[in-house]
Design a protein around this nucleic acid. Structure first.
Lengths: 201, 201
DNA sequence: GCTTGTCAAGCAAGCGCTTGCTTGGTAGCA
DNA sequence: TGCTACCAAGCAAGCGCTTGCTTGACAAGC
């Protein structure tokens, strides 16, 4: 991705990536419309017009943020899905991967922007995004099918997947890093909530 | 709620309520920051400065919308919660009431604004809102406790409630009125998803 | 060794437009 | 006459974005 020049030095400062990170954080905190170019520029220590050297429009920054978000989640969950473990272990690993992106320090701003700000994209871009989301959700559908095949859940329908992803994505609204629960614990509890059986009285 | 004057006539035109409705719809569609006073004024057929006769600031309009949202949900679910039916029937009625507000024509804009735009309130107002939400969620905690008491679920913990409300609130993201599922059906399926037992193969 | 040219990256200033909100006035009703 | 509800016009501030110019790094030419 950063290999257009023959200068891939160890730790070159990538200002474009800095802008995407800052934009992601600000879009998450204040929302796309309430974030100004000046906010973003200030956050990376630039003058107010300089970000436009790297991006044509503010809109393009949102696109970069959102694509970064779904890309990272997809990659993380795909890795967990293909780990070759038993259905329940695979499922839990997928939950953990998704939650890591959603709540962890690296991914949360991109993920939150993906979930809440992508409506500001124009229709064509939204359609593109829907396609990416569909590809992503196929992995969950398979995971639920495998759980049902193993007799661990009763319902692997379309709606069941929507409920599951709802419970997952809603964690953004209430999870606090300084709170009592770790991401690991939440993943396990959600697995138990869905599967229901292996749980102490 | 609309009884400050001694003029509760059958169908008096209440322009203030019109503004709140229009603001709710626009906040839902475009977000608070991206909605302009001119948008709202135009939607109710006013000049661009006239809404300020009814509201001091745009901010106050958001407050009115959000309070309308949580008030309506609370009222609807409280009625279902106190219906005196058996735990499972009560639970399903509560789900239906919550979803009606979230997805039905009357409440959805207020509910969506409540869920997605309340971050634009200032800290004091947000604290006030958190208190209202807590009062609301107590009803769900009790419903889950009753379900567990009746042996219908294994887990009535704090997190279980968060997962449940997540699955519920996330419906806003995927439900389409013209889609294949009615609110009634979704409520029943979510009940089955949580309780898990009474379900055909 | 010094000049010259090129290029990426950014700055300071500001343009045209939109924003939330204010103001002075007024039509309609009691 | 006075009050309610509104309009037309406009203000100051802030917005996304453009522009002309500067800076530092690097290479070529002599």
């Amino acid at each position: 991705m950063a290999a257009s020049k023959t200068k891939p030095a160890a730790e070159e400062p990538n200002r474009r990536a800095d802008i995407v990170r800052a934009a992601g954080r600000l879009f998450h905190e204040k929302g796309y419309s309430a974030t100004t170019i000046r906010d973003i520029a200030h956050a990376v220590g630039m003058g107010s017009g300089s970000p436009f050297y790297h991006f044509k429009t503010k809109h393009d920054m949102l696109r970069a943020v959102v694509l970064e978000g779904i890309g990272a989640i997809h990659q993380a969950v795909a890795k967990a899905a293909n780990s070759g473990k038993a259905p329940r272990a695979t499922f839990e690993a997928m939950l953990r991967a998704h939650l890591d992106q959603l709540l962890g320090e690296q991914g949360r701003d991109f993920a939150a922007a993906l979930l809440h700000e992508s409506r500001h994209l124009d229709p064509a871009e939204q359609a593109e995004l829907v396609a990416l989301k569909d590809r992503y959700e196929v992995m969950w559908q398979k995971a639920l099918r495998d759980l049902k095949g193993a007799g661990l859940i009763a319902d692997d329908s379309h709606v069941a997947r929507l409920f599951l992803l709802g419970a997952l994505n809603w964690t953004v609204q209430w999870y606090r890093p300084e709170g009592p629960r770790t991401v690991e614990q939440i993943a396990r509890q959600l697995a138990s909530f869905v599967i229901g059986k292996p749980q102490r009285p």
